[in-house]
């Protein structure tokens, strides 16, 4: 959805109604991408809060070169990557992969309905994981992914292929081990 110039100006001036509208139209994808990157609800809630505060504080920096929603998703993705890097959650998650599997096998109710796939995704580097989340899970087009990640479509395709290959290989290894 394209926003009009008047609307963008209102948002840049700090109009709370305009900000609320932007939040409502972008929150779902933003939250789901953050969640699928962190696989932690509490962490996702904190990141989501910080992302939208950051968006509001940096509203004057937005330039209408790219659509507002892609600018927002980019902030969300970059902020999530920074948080993950800072808190070294990657290591924590890697060590808890076994835990995901145990939960899935025991058929216990948990937050990770997509269990094995998401657990395997955590093993993949963020730059390969992100295109998979955006394309195969959130159904964004190549063009949209290139706008969010600020890379060209060719790079999106190659990263996606590499990510898919890694995911499939990890899955096959897990199946062979069972």
């Amino acid at each position: 959805m394209e926003h009009s110039s008047e609307f963008i100006e209102l948002f840049k001036k700090g109009d709370h109604k305009a900000f609320e509208h932007i939040y409502d139209t972008t929150k779902k994808l933003t939250y789901n991408v953050i969640y699928k990157m962190t696989m932690d609800i509490e962490e996702s809630n904190d990141i989501m809060h910080d992302v939208y505060v950051k968006i509001y504080e940096n509203k004057h920096k937005y330039q209408q070169i790219v659509d507002l929603k892609y600018w927002i998703y980019r902030i969300a993705v970059n902020h999530t990557l920074n948080v993950l890097k800072k808190r070294s959650i990657f290591n924590k998650q890697r060590s808890s992969i076994g835990f995901f599997y145990t939960k899935q096998i025991n058929n216990q109710k948990n937050d990770y309905e997509e269990g094995p796939i998401m657990a395997l995704l955590l093993k993949i580097k963020p730059k390969y994981k992100l295109p998979i989340i955006l394309k195969d899970i959130e159904n964004l087009s190549y063009e949209e992914i290139s706008k969010v990640l600020k890379i060209n479509i060719g790079t999106v395709r190659s990263r996606l292929n590499r990510g898919r290959k890694q995911l499939l290989e990890s899955y096959q290894k897990e199946v062979a081990n069972e």
């Binding site: 939040y23 939250y31 939208y52 997509e114």
Partner: peptide
């Protein structure tokens, strides 16, 4: 790969309502 992805139904998470009020509070 398609079979693997299709075998899973990815559920979309609902955004907690409290987030927006906390954002505005901040």
């Amino acid at each position: 790969y398609q079979d693997l992805i299709n075998s899973v139904s990815f559920k979309s998470k609902d955004v907690p309502l409290s987030i927006y009020s906390k954002v505005m509070e901040t």
